[in-house]
Write a protein that binds this DNA or RNA. Structure first.
Length: 272
DNA sequence: CGCCAGGGACGAA
DNA sequence: TTCGTCCATGGC
């Protein structure tokens, strides 16, 4: 069990800002999620955030929840104008989760041209069909499948689970992970530019999905993944069609954080 | 019914 | 290089 000060960690902001797909609200002040083949509950009580976990796993969750990072510093640094101040204020409890590489790879392939509730639905059905069962408080949950297990899924299987035209992308990505043509450790050793180039070679992985994988699982925080919402907010506020380039120039090593505050704010709050 | 969703492949110009 | 068009699917 990890006990944290509530400052700069809000459950709703972190789990519902669109970065992850396997967390569900359990009650007014608790969420249950599946990550690293474990089910875990995070609660908010008084002024504390409580991560219910085994003592032996604390290191895992410390990394997953990015607990060592000073988010107050980041928020100050990206608050470069009125809009950013507003976006940061709206999403001030966001932490960028460090998710499993294979899970992020497949999940963000699924995310393309899709909406968040359906992404979650598909990721859950894939997990239920190919992931390991986890029993938690007398309920069965399913871990995100290993590459070896997901290898059993054919394109048709994945279509039947709702993946749509992305099914063929998933099959190929799984193959490349299995045969080590795509390897997490190798990506980590590369420069960001080289890691991008490698991921962009994958069938069905373009700029946006590539940046999400790098940001949300490999800790490349100097990227500014640009989807329709980010393009919209950058166009509206900076009159630019080049959201990614402009964002990365403006926010540098904090691009990924800035991007997440903006996405969450623009998508949920601003009408029109 | 048409439009949209955390896009990308593909062929045409 | 850039630009249309198509791709599955469900919610509204």
């Amino acid at each position: 069990m990890l006990l944290l000060d509530k400052n700069s960690f809000n459950l709703k902001d972190t789990f519902e800002c669109g970065q992850c797909f396997r967390w569900e609200k359990e009650s007014e002040n608790s969420y249950i999620g599946i990550a690293h083949s474990k089910v875990i509950r995070v609660k908010e009580e008084k002024n504390k955030i409580i991560i219910e976990c085994d003592e032996k796993d604390e290191k895992i969750w410390e990394e997953y929840f990015d607990l060592k990072r000073n988010y107050e510093e980041i928020k100050k640094a990206v608050s470069i104008n009125k809009m950013m101040e507003e976006a940061v204020e709206y999403g001030k409890g966001i932490r960028i989760l460090k998710q499993d590489f294979f899970e992020a790879l497949i999940s963000f392939i699924i995310s393309q041209q899709n909406n968040i509730s359906r992404i979650k639905k598909i990721v859950n059905s894939v997990s239920k069909a190919y992931g390991e069962e986890i029993l938690f408080e007398n309920k069965t949950y399913y871990a995100f499948p290993t590459p070896e297990s997901l290898k059993k899924a054919t394109e048709k299987d994945l279509m039947d689970l709702g993946a749509g035209y992305r099914a063929k992308y998933i099959v190929k990505a799984v193959d490349e992970v299995i045969n080590k043509s795509l390897d997490e450790d190798e990506l980590l050793k590369m420069s960001v530019q080289d890691a991008r180039k490698r991921l962009l070679k994958l069938f069905g992985v373009g700029d946006k999905v590539c940046d999400c994988i790098l940001l949300f699982s490999l800790g490349k925080y100097d990227l500014f993944p640009s989807d329709v919402w980010i393009k919209r907010v950058m166009k509206e506020n900076f009159d630019t069609e080049f959201a990614k380039e402009t964002g990365e120039k403006m926010f540098g090593k904090y691009s990924g954080f800035a991007q997440q505050y903006l996405f969450y704010w623009r998508k949920n709050l601003k009408a029109k």
